[in-house]
Design a protein around this nucleic acid. Structure first.
Lengths: 213, 213
DNA sequence: ATTTGAAATTTAACAGTGTTAAGTTTCCTG
DNA sequence: CAGGAAACTTAACACTGTTAAATTTCAAAT
């Protein structure tokens, strides 16, 4: 009985249409501009039909971000071939910043907004797997740097170091996304600031005597 | 005719009551939880009365943040007595992080949320004055560090350096405020991460040969 | 062929939001 | 006592996300 399969196929098709319509609005205009009624109009369904496919608005839009999250992890893994762990950390920073500028609205929701949702299917989302989990990839790189004696001797906690590096990258991006239009500050370009902060961080983390790039 | 003065006094009294009621809600529950109707109820006025005193909700709540902004600048100026410019930078970082944790909702609005308002009375807000403008204080400290030859020779742009330092501090705080409850990551404590990132940054910025603290 | 019944969707409605326009009170001035 | 600005209230608008109930759709079972 391939009939249930067809039903599920149709169900998924509608689900996909919702996600696509939502994505278009979300990318172009941000979270608040996405409304159930606008999505519904775009896909020619009634607004409440969406609730059959998604629990609520936040769950729906966070699903879009999950897709982007994968694309970030993918970008990280393209760096895996770089042999030098320290240089890899710099490149991770660069990729992270690029992600932020090219997916501003996703970035805002993923990293600048507290989630009301409690996730449970972590295992299914590739949590901890370097290929799907950007943070795991970063931690693994830090571990390699520690193991190869590239970092200062006091730096023994990979998570702490990883979170400091992440914070540095996040700081530049987040400040840019939130305050770039604020003329209170004479802003320098994002890439310039990002290069400085990443190099400074790696430079400050690396053990003395290690060749400088 | 002191009658106009009395009127203005009353006017300011109502204005203040609005701000106080709004602050209580804002501090305890954040931006979205502050509604015109809840403020109105608290001060026993009709909701629309608020519009006589404030253009709109965002303007009202951003005025609260301006007050906090002053208190941040004040905290910075308490550091001015520290003679060593590099140590002063570390202390600025510490004070900034402390501000973030003790004023989370203000911090979110001030530094993590794009403003729809275009300010104009910058001059009146002490823009550029170290005593009232935290960023100006930071830039001034960086300038001193550069002038005293404490920073690497390539670092000649005070704004760039200041923004990198700010980004570092902001990164830790912002990530904490947005994602501390996300169990995806094994979070290290805010202060631990903040100490590491600030020391690493200063360490990476300072000219070789300068004493390490 | 017709009932059954679950799945998918729509209609109607609720409770809330910020905000504007119009009407009303208050109270000093001429 | 009339005029009029200032301060405020009432009523309403145009939205929002979301729930409950009614309806359609359509394959399976009688």
């Amino acid at each position: 009985m391939g009939i249930n399969e067809r039903r599920e196929r149709e169900r998924k098709a509608v689900r996909k249409k919702i996600l696509e319509a939502a994505r278009e609005l979300f990318v172009a205009e941000g979270y608040d501009a996405v409304t159930m009624r606008r999505i519904a109009e775009a896909i020619e369904y009634s607004p409440t039909a969406i609730y059959f496919h998604f629990k609520d608005k936040e769950t729906l839009i966070r699903e879009l971000c999950k897709e982007d999250s994968s694309s970030l992890a993918k970008a990280f893994n393209a760096i895996a071939k770089e042999p030098d762990a320290l240089e890899r950390l710099r490149k991770i920073g660069r990729a992270y910043v690029e992600f932020g500028v090219s997916h501003p609205n996703s970035y805002r929701l993923m990293f600048m907004t507290q989630s009301k949702i409690k996730e449970d299917d972590y295992a299914e989302m590739g949590h901890g797997k370097q290929e799907e989990d950007g943070y795991a990839f970063l931690v693994a790189t830090v571990i390699e740097a520690i193991d190869k004696g590239l970092l200062r001797k006091v730096l023994v906690d990979p998570h702490l170091v990883a979170q400091a590096i992440w914070s540095a990258g996040h700081g530049v991006v987040a400040l840019h996304l939130a305050k770039r239009d604020d003329p209170w500050v004479e802003w320098r370009s994002l890439t310039e600031t990002a290069e400085l902060i990443m190099h400074t961080m790696i430079n400050g983390l690396k053990r003395e005597g290690i060749a400088h790039d």
